[in-house]
Design a protein around this nucleic acid. Sequence first.
DNA 1: TTAAATTTTTAGACTTAACTAAAAATATAT
DNA 2: ATATATTTTTAGTTAAGTCTAAAAATTTAA
Lengths: 218, 218
Amino acid sequence: MFTFSEENYLKAIYHLELDSDKVISTNSIAKKLETKASSVTDMIQKLSEKEVVVYKKYQGVTLTDFGRKTAANIVRKHRLWEVFLVEKLNFSWDEVHDVAEQLEHIKSPKLIDQIDAFLGFPTHDPHGDPIPDKEGNLKTIEKSLLSTLSKNESGICVGVNDSSSEFLKFLDKKGVTLGKQITVLEKEDFDASLLIEIDNNKLSVSNKIASNLYIQRQ
Amino acid sequence: MFTFSEENYLKAIYHLELDSDKVISTNSIAKKLETKASSVTDMIQKLSEKEVVVYKKYQGVTLTDFGRKTAANIVRKHRLWEVFLVEKLNFSWDEVHDVAEQLEHIKSPKLIDQIDAFLGFPTHDPHGDPIPDKEGNLKTIEKSLLSTLSKNESGICVGVNDSSSEFLKFLDKKGVTLGKQITVLEKEDFDASLLIEIDNNKLSVSNKIASNLYIQRQ
DNA sequence: TTAAATTTTTAGACTTAACTAAAAATATAT
DNA sequence: ATATATTTTTAGTTAAGTCTAAAAATTTAA
Ligand SMILES: [Mn+2]
Ligand SMILES: [Mn+2]
Ligand SMILES: [Mn+2]
Ligand SMILES: [Mn+2]
């Protein structure tokens, strides 16, 4: 079994590997966990002892298969709990992350299996992120940042890149939620902002917004 | 905020106070938490600093109002989670305690309020124990140990004194569950065993069983 | 009421997971 | 290729929570 701290390190390394497929540096882990590089070195050495990461001094770290599966399982729990909170307990998508950060560490295989079944085996969490299966596999859907769409292209809003509470609340205010159809009406060269159509309304979105919204092209 | 360890100490003291209404000794806490008296002294001093207990060297400990409310809230969470696991996730009453021991430490007022509402504001947990309200008050129902009933008395099974998995599984096997009507047909002087009627069946129960089952007389 | 037994506290040590500061290794730039 | 900058590791502290062993206080028994 792993401590909370070990689980958080595993999850951080897992996420870093997913969006870089390179060896993960001490510093990048420190940045992600808002801790010091020296603390990371300590923990990495322990995780290496426990055979969840492969580590050579100064060479960064990679997850072993066992480590990756362990990490995926934590992410699985995190995302299933987020679905539960939204679907069953009337949480909004900007409120669930912090609670899920706690709930993901609860140790009970039966509990998470039952939550999964209770929710009807969801495949994605409230932010559009895929839920790893029990073996740790996740099927990613084809999705593109809104900022990469051309004029007149359209698609369905399927996820967010930034899932901070601020961004999510902003989207709520603008009426942008997952599942909505979006069409790019204009692209401004000047500031890379977009004029989009959503719910038969025109909405102007900055490049910052557009580079944090995932669209499934159609 | 309190650490897991502090919360467990608070809960232990709370339970000890409930079934003794005396000042609580260092040793009794150590026994309940399966730890050493010296560790208890350390922790008690910290809890005293935090003003959740009143402590004078060698004089034992009592909860302050704030401490009692804090402890009751942990028990509230524990029991609501137990109800959730049984009612919504198909756990049996002998499986829920260990998971609830973890879940009771999750910090999110909204979460527990929503669970409470989702469950329809239950008043008792799967073992018949009362669920403290948000102010920490618990209303206890009139109940007696089965062993205290006389011949020909009857009542409803409303709780267990021992909620170990072994005892609960044993009760399941014998068909004894909360809500069932029980009538005492015979009391044996020799070994204090009882012959009871339940579901139109006769069942012989030892004194050990009878002193761990709560009955609401009728 | 003194002695023995029990309970409780203190002192000192250990583990985990942080931190800072300094040393060592690696990467980058001249 | 050498100097500089950056990254990473090591060494040494700290705090929380536990432990054992010993001292102190309290309770019980003679
Ligand atoms: Mn999240
Ligand atoms: Mn999410
Ligand atoms: Mn319980
Ligand atoms: Mn219970």
